[in-house]
């Protein structure tokens, strides 16, 4: 498979008055064309910041301070802001933002908002753009007549469909979906996931799905990266992560999910709280909460080990072997 995106040792820090928050601290992964990757982790683990870094929209006081984002063979961190905006953002990499409810402008109709994408990026006239808008709405399962509706006239699920339409408007090869279904009910969530799956197959678009919900990632992702405190602790194919998790954090996360089907086993939890990213603990960042903690874990950062082809774990338990 052709590689579309390669992230190497990405570092995004926030320079706050209290100190430097290392929100993303050396994240690496790669994504093939037409592949879907899930990026999972608890709140505050840096998964959204990773997403905003990919589209170069990290809000101040945040800054990308290191690493490479190689997209279609080119390091997009070397481009000027203006070049990136004109050539990449939305044309090549677009995003479905978290909380569709608030991401739409309340004083414009959804048709106007969708048309703007074509008018700005492709220089179409309003009439030309509107005919494209109708096609887009049709594609995401909304009656094109709704183009004249304002966001408040639509349900949450429909607003999310509009957000998806907007992200796919220019046929970008990569779409980042940041918690696309939070605040939606399960039935609507399942409809939105079905829509994403269908469009992903039709257009062969690559998707990075960011969510804390591992069940949702299993619905669509070919690859999974598990983040903890600014770092990727485990990375592999969906089968490797779900059926053969190797990092104690991944294992505990999977055992903390209540399941609707099958045996009821006792739910587990991870004691403690994630570390403060201004002064993360030395050694492995998960060590204070880990039940397999050894001496070395609190002293030295664990190496990344390939336990089987394509399955990478960052844990001392595997370094011994």
């Amino acid at each position: 498979m052709e590689t579309l995106l390669e992230v190497k040792d990405l570092k995004t820090y926030f320079y706050t008055t209290k100190g430097v928050v290392k929100a993303v601290d050396g994240v690496s992964f790669s994504l093939g064309k037409g592949e879907v990757m899930g990026l999972a982790g608890e709140s505050g683990c840096g998964k959204s910041t990773t997403a905003y870094s990919l589209i170069r929209l990290v809000p101040p006081p945040g800054k990308i301070v290191g690493g490479k984002i190689i997209f279609e063979g080119k390091n997009i961190l070397e481009l000027s802001d203006e070049d990136f905006r004109k050539k990449y953002r939305w044309k090549k990499i677009s995003m479905i933002f978290q909380g569709a409810m608030n991401a739409l402008n309340p004083v414009y109709t959804i048709g106007d908002q969708l048309a703007e994408v074509f008018m700005l990026h492709e220089g179409l006239t309003k009439t030309e753009a509107m005919s494209k808008v109708y096609e887009l709405l049709e594609m995401v399962g909304i009656d094109p007549k709704r183009a004249r509706s304002y966001p408040h006239e639509l349900s949450g699920g429909m607003k999310q469909r509009v957000m998806i339409a907007m992200a796919l408007a220019l046929n970008p090869p990569l779409v980042i979906a940041d918690e696309p279904t939070t605040a939606l009910d399960v039935v609507v969530q399942a409809q939105i996931m079905n829509l994403l799956k269908k469009l992903q197959r039709e257009k062969n678009v690559s998707i990075i799905l960011i969510t804390h919900d591992l069940s949702l990632i299993a619905e669509i992702a070919d690859k999974v990266a598990i983040m903890y405190a600014g770092k990727v602790v485990e990375y592999g194919t969906a089968e490797q992560i779900y059926l053969n998790p190797q990092h104690p954090y991944t294992q505990a996360l999977l055992r903390s999910i209540p399941r609707l089907r099958g045996e009821i086993s006792k739910l587990e939890w991870i004691p403690g709280t994630p570390p403060d990213l201004i002064a993360p603990p030395p050694g492995c960042r998960f060590a204070p909460r880990c039940k397999f903690r050894m001496d070395i874990c609190t002293k030295e950062e664990p190496p990344t080990i390939e336990v089987e082809p394509g399955h990478i774990v960052s844990c001392w338990l595997h370094a011994k072997k």
């Binding site: 399942a190 992702a221 779900y242």
Partner: peptide, 22 residues
Amino acid sequence: ALIAAIPDPDPRNRHILRELPI
């Protein structure tokens, strides 16, 4: 319909579309 809509952490689910009887 509610039960059919609930995802579970099984990577095989990605190959199919969920059927929603609603």
